[in-house]
Simulated assay, not measured.
Amino acid sequence: MATNWPQRLTERAEARRAEGLWRSRPTVDPKDPRQDFAGNDYLGLARDPRLAEAQAEAARRRGAGGRASHLVCGHQTIHETLERRLAELTGRPRALLFSTGYMANLGVLQALCDRHTPVFQDRLNHASLIDGARLAGAPSRRFHHRDLADLERLLARAQEGAPALVVSDGVFSMDGDVADVAGLAATARRHDAWLMIDDAHGLGVLGGVGDGCAGRAHGVDEVPVLVGTLGKALGSAGAFVAGDAALIEHLIQFARPYIYTTAQPPGVAAATLAALDILDTEPERRARLHQRIQRFRREAATLGLELDASTTPIQPLRLGDNQRTLRWAARLGEANLRVGAIRAPTVPQGEARLRITLSATHDDDALDALLEGLADCQRQEAA
């Protein structure tokens, strides 16, 4: 007799627990005393009262929900305004809103690719990019992480005449390093391929005006498809795709996650517009964030902590072993410090790590507490 469903679920749960890979959702309360070194609120905007007030006011005036999909009657003037602002920020002719970053990546890849479209992805790309190519049924090849020579080799072997797409994270979410956007663009051009960059963790943080690692410095000719999210450095929710008019119109017609989803609530769009205003008028937030990054890396080195080579807010500390990673995260939690314990399948097997993330709102006391907590973990491990 075949295994029944309850037995199947129990067996899979037991196996995951035994491997040290079981995940639990931390329930966070606004009064939680712990310092957050796990989230993606890089500029400290998620709790900025100006965003909350903009969201509340828009909800009062326009309603709490989007009411319908963009193509029915959900596309409001506030969405149109936000799309224009995002296009301006990234130096693109047009932008298109999506409800989440995952949906944006699924939508783009499903709309652009099919079984005749080879897709070349960095080995450490986000799961949504991998899943998007699978959804499209596109033949997908993975090149070694940030290895342009390997990408060149794979592109040279591709079938001639097929429209190829090269896809990469901008800032890699678990490693914190940055794609060589110029190198990827040059390599793609040599093989008549398009380049798609998901700059979820670079937008708001990198670039001269917070336009990310693939914004105005790399225009639409170099990076025809640019994806950004609004729920990280910008502190709200949702995502967008920026590019030329032909790309955006194509996505409106063919991107199923866009066509068949209720529009973003107008209050969320208003909060994002408020965040963009702050991004424009308070560049000191970005400067303060990068000062925090430099100080943390400098003092972590004096403790002998071997951080990955990252100049972004994502500062991974590889511990290798799942149980060791969980122990360190638990000890830090006891010291009122929340840090992400990242294990497979999010990262490769044997590369478990603490994913430490920094924010412009972390003051010197918070960094001191984090460094002391990490030093204490070292001491307990050595005892």
Rank of each mutant, 00 (worst) to 15 (best):
M1S: 14
W5P: 04
A13L: 15
A15C: 00
A15F: 02
R16K: 12
R16C: 12
G20T: 03
W22A: 15
T27V: 14
V28H: 09
V28S: 09
D29A: 15
K31A: 14
D41G: 05
Y42S: 04
A46T: 08
R47P: 00
R50F: 01
L51S: 09
E53V: 10
A54M: 10
A59S: 13
R60Y: 05
R61L: 15
R62E: 13
G63E: 07
A64M: 03
A64H: 04
G65I: 01
R67P: 02
H70E: 02
C73K: 13
H75F: 15
T77M: 05
H79T: 08
E83G: 03
R84P: 00
R84F: 00
L86I: 08
R92T: 09
R94W: 13
L96A: 10
M103I: 01
A104R: 01
Q110D: 14
Q110N: 12
A111S: 08
D114Q: 08
V119C: 10
Q121K: 05
D122R: 03
L124D: 09
L129K: 00
P139H: 07
R141L: 11
R142C: 12
R142W: 14
E152H: 14
E152W: 04
E152I: 01
R153H: 14
L154G: 10
A164W: 03
L165W: 04
S168V: 07
S173C: 06
M174C: 12
M174R: 12
A185W: 02
A186P: 03
T187K: 00
R189E: 15
A193N: 05
M196R: 07
M196G: 06
D198G: 00
G212Y: 03
G212I: 00
A214V: 00
A217L: 10
V223R: 08
V225F: 01
V225A: 03
V225Q: 04
G231L: 13
G243E: 10
D244V: 09
L251G: 13
A255F: 01
Y260A: 14
T262P: 00
A263G: 07
P266N: 10
V268E: 12
A270T: 11
L273E: 09
A274L: 05
A275E: 02
L276D: 01
L279C: 02
E282K: 06
R286P: 02
L289K: 05
Q291V: 11
R295F: 05
R295I: 08
R295P: 04
R297S: 11
E306V: 02
L307Q: 04
L307F: 10
S310H: 03
S310M: 04
R318E: 12
W328G: 04
A329N: 01
A329T: 04
G333F: 02
E334V: 07
R338G: 06
V339L: 11
G340Q: 10
G340K: 07
A341T: 10
A344Y: 09
Q349K: 14
G350H: 12
A352W: 05
L358R: 03
T361I: 13
D363Y: 07
A366S: 14
L367A: 11
D368T: 14
L370T: 02
L374Y: 10
A375H: 13
C377H: 06
A382I: 06
